[in-house]
Design a protein around this nucleic acid. Sequence first.
DNA 1: ACGATGATGAAC
DNA 2: TTCATCATCGTA
Length: 170
Amino acid sequence: MILGHVFFARKAPVVARMLLGAYLVHRHSGRVRRYKIIETEAYDGFHDRASHASRGKTPRTEVMFGKAGHWYVYLVYGMHEMLNIVCGATGYPSAVLIRGVAGISGPARLTKALNITRALNKKPASKASGLWVERGVRVPDSKILRTARVGVSYAGEKWANMEWRFVLKE
DNA sequence: ACGATGATGAAC
DNA sequence: TTCATCATCGTA
């Protein structure tokens, strides 16, 4: 079952938690592959200083303010593409960074392995775009590790310490 | 511990 | 137009 707008139209931390155990499904040159999602991070709302959206709507962040269930892909450090899915109500900026799938850990390694680039930015998470998400098995809380997000120490104590990183212990 | 490498947003 | 910064990774 493909997860669509209704699934993603809730608060990013909730989506980040629920995505663990779900499958990132990718079609590339006719081949379909499923990857179990094992690590995510939430970026939520206007005030989250770790979120690109905290500086307001810009050409880059515009998609975060748009409809849930679309991809937000951007370049970081001049070389790494990051894959995010837009969450929440339309007009409320939030997204979940997909940091790892089974067999591939690290958000930059993930996009490199799956050939995901900014060409996918603003596209829907559906078969039409070639990259979508399917429901997985339910994962109990006992198998989930919750921590602060990676690389956001600049965001101030409150936001840097927010435990919005979710890892599935395998 | 650090360099690669370029887009982004803010300041000027 | 310039500048500091950055949701990282591989090599050391």
